[in-house]
Simulated assay, not measured.
Amino acid sequence: MPTERYHVRVTKDSFIFSCAHFITFNRDQGERLHGHNYRVAVEVEGPLDENHYVFDFIALRDRTQAISFELDHHVLLATLNPLLSVEETADRVRVTFGQKEWLFPREDCILLPIENTTAELLAKWIAGRLLADVRGRGFSPQVIRVEVEENIGQSAIYESRA
């Protein structure tokens, strides 16, 4: 018996965000602060609705674009990383890792509840934001995939299945 599956995928030139970040690894090593021009693609899978849509392209495009704009031109900091100390005040964010210390203006930072600012975890965080939004519109996709490309030919994909 044949099985049908429907997917909707959006990726646009406007789904780009330029951010600074660094990653910690091997318990005692960390990258230098650096940046990427990230690009996002989103795919949802589910049954067709009464309009014969999986989900409205425009709504998915607009929400993905809003998240991209929100992240754009910020320093991304992982608040759940046990190797980092992230201290936030009204106007500053102080980050320490071993002997290293950074002090950023608060308005320049996005504090993310993730363990590290890897492309994999950024994709998962974006997927979580999108899922909350589409579920709020009454849609529960069977599958959501979010791809975060940090350089041409270098990307990570997060997938969640209902």
Rank of each mutant, 00 (worst) to 15 (best):
H34Y: 05
H34M: 08
H34N: 11
G35Y: 11
G35K: 10
G35N: 12
G35P: 08
G35A: 08
G35M: 10
G35E: 05
H36Q: 07
H36I: 06
H36F: 00
H36S: 09
N37V: 08
N37M: 05
Y38R: 04
Y38C: 02
Y38V: 00
Y38K: 08
Y38T: 07
R39C: 09
R39Q: 14
R39Y: 07
R39H: 12
R39D: 02
R39N: 10
R39S: 10
R39V: 01
V40C: 05
V40N: 06
V40Y: 08
V40R: 09
A41Q: 08
V42P: 08
V42C: 03
V42M: 03
V42H: 10
E43K: 10
E43F: 00
E43I: 00
V44I: 15
V44Q: 10
V44F: 04
V44P: 06
V44Y: 08
E45C: 11
E45D: 03
G46V: 08
G46Y: 13
G46D: 14
G46W: 15
P47I: 05
P47A: 15
P47Y: 10
P47R: 15
P47E: 15
L48H: 13
L48V: 12
L48D: 11
L48I: 13
L48W: 12
D49W: 11
D49P: 09
D49K: 14
D49Y: 14
E50D: 15
E50T: 13
E50P: 08
E50F: 13
N51L: 07
N51P: 06
N51C: 07
N51Q: 13
H52I: 07
H52V: 04
H52D: 14
Y53P: 00
Y53R: 12
Y53V: 06
Y53K: 12
V54R: 06
V54Y: 09
V54Q: 07
F55E: 00
F55W: 09
D56Q: 05
D56P: 01
D56N: 11
F57K: 06
I58N: 10
I58D: 10
I58V: 07
A59D: 03
A59F: 00
L60C: 06
L60A: 01
R61G: 02
R61L: 00
R61I: 06
R61F: 09
D62P: 00
D62C: 04
D62S: 09
R63V: 01
R63N: 02
R63H: 05
R63E: 06
R63W: 00
R63M: 06
T64R: 04
T64N: 07
T64A: 11
T64I: 04
Q65M: 12
Q65P: 03
A66N: 12
A66W: 03
A66S: 13
A66D: 13
I67E: 03
I67R: 12
I67G: 10
S68T: 13
F69S: 15
F69C: 14
F69E: 15
